[in-house]
Design a protein around this nucleic acid. Structure first.
Lengths: 215, 215
DNA sequence: TTGACATAGTGACATGGCGTCACCATAATG
DNA sequence: CATTATGGTGACGCCATGTCACTATGTCAA
């Protein structure tokens, strides 16, 4: 065991500074693109010197990796109904898309910042791709299962799941990633229409409009 | 009239240098991500000094803007069948997606570089968004027209066209944007399935497989 | 209490890429 | 032959980055 400065429940100095940096990043990215974020600007709002930054993160992309970890969790939870739920798959699909749209509407600028930053750093790019990859796996599994039940026509689920997931990611990021954000309702309806028509067939679209799912 | 160094048809020094820079960029981006491109590296392969670069482009994003202009044209041509063609819309859709996949497979790394660079520069980002925007307009018009003929069910075409175009862009970029590129056939089939199921209905999917369109 | 030690934080430095500027060379024009 | 504009160059200053030696502070063990 090493010498731990704080033996009891109180959060230590280190944790507080780290959190301050992350909060500064969140505050900044809500209204500015990632490309405008600098270490100087970030540390200006924390009260500690610029070089202290490198004690907590390797670079700005390290901050974004941390942010990805936070957002990731929320998105996984939102997507769960259709991925793992039982019951009417079309209703579950509405629920999942509803959740994804909600999370991405609330976190839009952050998610866009992560996706932007992913283009500028190999490691973050890899993490981002892996993140999307888990959705591919999950969607493929669900499609396969529903195909075996005859709910979805037979086709290779891999490329379709891949494409539909990219559809969600890039549509949501573009729609909600910068101010002014689009109205979420039409986006939700469009995504639901595309997923349902592609997987379960057009006949499911007219009845059970998305308002049916919303409590 | 100013003093023009080349009075007749021969291409001048300036045009040649500019082309050399663009070629250097193409050569580099085929196997390296945009984030690794520098002015020094670019000019090293041209034989002229680094500072000469700024006579032809304002910065690296200026190069990417020029590249966008080139690729844009090819993509417009490829997309034309469904956008402006007459006849069976499902066949035209297959033709368009076929063309898009072909162009994006050939130019993949360049297109990905443009899209990456768009995240790092305001002006290029605007140009890229505008580029995608023209497809939105075109798709909306086509969907409206087919809706009036009863070929596509009635719904607000705006968000659906928006989402489907983002689907194409991000799927094609992710599939073919870096080596090793995916097999184009499954991607083509997945995109065709999604577009056709969403717009014209599932019943068009089984017959007329994509191989029918390929000469 | 004291000495040892780990952790938080700092200022200074070197680096690398960028964009500009004053200046030079060349070649076409009159 | 003088003029003039275009293509090209080296040097400069700038900005953000990442590192490093060093200080300060607080904790633990003897």
């Amino acid at each position: 065991m090493r010498a731990r400065p704080q033996p009891s429940g109180k959060i230590g100095k280190a944790e507080r500074t780290r959190a301050a940096i992350l909060n500064a990043a969140l505050g900044f990215l809500w209204s500015h693109p990632f490309r405008e974020m600098t270490v100087v600007g970030l540390m200006a709002s924390t009260g500690v010197s610029r070089s202290a930054f490198y004690r907590y993160f390797t670079d700005l992309h390290g901050v974004m990796t941390a942010l990805l970890g936070i957002v990731q969790e929320e998105i996984f939870v939102a997507a769960e109904p259709w991925i793992a739920g039982v019951g009417d798959p079309v209703a579950l699909m509405h629920e999942t898309i509803d959740g994804l749209v909600r999370v991405c509407y609330e976190r839009g600028p952050f998610i866009r910042a992560i996706s932007d930053a992913a283009a500028m750093d190999m490691h973050l790019g890899e993490a981002w791709r892996e993140f999307l990859g888990t959705f591919d796996e999950a969607a493929i599994a669900r499609i396969k299962a529903d195909q075996e039940q005859g709910l979805i026509p037979a086709f290779d689920p891999g490329p379709v799941a891949f494409a539909l997931n990219r559809l969600d990611a890039s549509t949501l990021i573009e729609a909600f990633g910068q101010h002014p954000r689009m109205d979420p309702d039409p986006v939700r309806e469009a995504l639901a229409r595309i997923w349902i028509a592609t997987l379960y067939g057009t006949e499911w679209l007219e009845r059970g409009s998305s308002t049916l799912v919303r409590t």
